[in-house]
Amino acid sequence: MTVVEAIGLYKSFGPVEAVRGVSFSVPRGEIFGLLGPNGAGKTTTIRMITGLLRPDRGRAFIMGIDVHRDPVRARSHIGVVPEVSNPYVDLSVWDNLLLIGKLYCIPKETIIERGKFLLEELGLYDRRSSKAKTLSKGMRRRLLLAMALISDPEILFLDEPTSGLDVFSARRIRSMITELRRNGKTIVLTTHNIDEAGMLCDRVAIINKGKIIAEGTPDDLRIRYGKYIEIKVSFDNSIDSSVLNEFRDHYNVTCDERWVTIICEKNELDEVLDKIMNIKHRLGLRIKDLHIESQSFEDIFVRIVRGE
């Protein structure tokens, strides 16, 4: 069952076309990632889907509810952590949770029970009486996540959930996201952290200049766009770079004091390894180290965004 649907969303700010016909749908229980460089239109898209911005054209649905016809009912099914946002810094951690719970008209006992559970899960229970201004950035982000989850929403929108956080806070949030998916939540997240998307998302859409330019599972995209591999070889003696001329006509080759790096297509691996062995025997060298790596998801993302 589709729980989030964007159909042909357009949004301009003056002469700038921020979003140009974005469409996608997210089935229940999926983690869907909207990836893109800064200014690609991710946040504007999320704002339109959550009813904060009215699209110039197109429609958005949450659980089949037209977000712009009935934003209150649509938003009652979602939790949102906007990219640039804060809890109320002069309220305590607990009072921030209470406030949000009341805005969803949740009974106080439920807020207390759920709030306690969430704060414990997110490592904030000991700080529940502290004012939010005394929390670190990572803790504030976790508090925002707890605030988004206090209504036990079916769908969670996370705009750059780990942006600017240290490794430990980022890991904690990622593990919470994985846990939420396990509990059947649908999660829509935006990120420019490609590895994070590759790690967390069941499906991703890559957005650039306001348009979705690729969509699929991270593995799909790796197969579709990741046709190159990188071979790094280190010999026991340095070699004259002219020796590598036979590679240069066909492959992308770089060389430094330690490594010779050759980028070729996957189906050329055997041929390139033969040539490396040929050089080794011809010059009487020994191979000290050899790495063969598929392109990272980040490399694939860069290639897609550049339109290569």
Binding site: P71, P87, Y104, F157
Partner: peptide, 14 residues
């Protein structure tokens, strides 16, 4: 300025 407005606007309120 405190960046709380978007956070509150994203709730089921008008």
């Amino acid at each position: 300025r405190q960046k709380t407005l978007e956070m509150i606007l994203a709730r089921p309120i008008t």
